[in-house]
Computed example of a mutant assay.
Amino acid sequence: MSKLPKAPLLEVIFEIKWDITSKTDIVDFQYLHGDLYSNLKSKYSHRENLLPPEVPLDIIKGSPVFRFREKQGSYPLVQVGPGLISLNTIDDKYFWNQFRDESNKILNILNDIYPKYSNFNLSPALTYLDFFNYDKSRETPLDFINSNFQLSLNDDFMKDTDSKMHDVNFTFNYEVEQKIVSLNLRNGKINNDKNGIVLQTKVIGKKEKYDAQKLKEWLESAHNLSSNMFKSLTAGKLYESFK
Rank of each mutant, 00 (worst) to 15 (best):
M1E: 05
S2P: 10
S2W: 08
L4Q: 00
A7R: 10
E11F: 11
E11K: 15
V12Q: 01
V12A: 03
I13S: 12
F14V: 01
D19C: 12
D19N: 14
I20S: 07
T21A: 09
T24W: 15
D25T: 13
Q30M: 13
Y31I: 15
Y31V: 15
L32A: 11
L32E: 11
G34E: 15
K41R: 08
H46S: 04
E48Q: 14
E54D: 13
P56H: 13
D58L: 01
I60V: 00
I60D: 02
I60M: 02
K61F: 00
V65A: 13
E70R: 14
K71S: 07
K71F: 04
L77C: 03
V78S: 04
V78P: 04
Q79L: 04
P82Q: 09
P82L: 08
P82W: 05
I85C: 04
S86R: 05
S86T: 03
S86L: 02
L87M: 10
L87K: 11
N88V: 09
D91H: 14
Y94W: 11
F99K: 14
L107P: 06
L107K: 01
N108K: 01
N111T: 10
Y114I: 15
S118A: 15
N119T: 15
S123F: 05
P124C: 00
A125D: 04
L129K: 11
D130N: 12
F131W: 07
Y134C: 07
Y134V: 06
K136D: 10
K136F: 14
S137P: 07
S137E: 12
R138K: 10
T140C: 10
P141Q: 14
L142C: 05
N146I: 02
L151V: 15
S152R: 09
F157A: 13
F157S: 15
T161K: 13
D162I: 09
K164V: 12
K164D: 07
M165Y: 07
M165S: 14
H166G: 14
F170I: 09
F170V: 10
F170A: 14
F172Y: 07
F172V: 15
N173R: 09
N173L: 07
N173C: 05
E175P: 00
E175W: 02
V176I: 06
E177D: 07
K179P: 00
L185W: 14
L185M: 13
G196M: 13
I197R: 07
I197L: 07
I197E: 01
V198K: 09
V198W: 11
V198L: 11
L199M: 09
L199K: 07
L199N: 06
T201Q: 02
I204Q: 04
G205A: 00
K206S: 04
K209Y: 12
Y210T: 05
D211R: 12
A212N: 05
K216V: 01
K216I: 02
E217K: 13
W218C: 01
L219C: 03
L219T: 00
E220L: 06
M229A: 06
S232W: 06
A235V: 10
G236K: 03
G236I: 07
S241N: 00
S241Y: 00
F242Y: 07
F242C: 03
K243N: 05
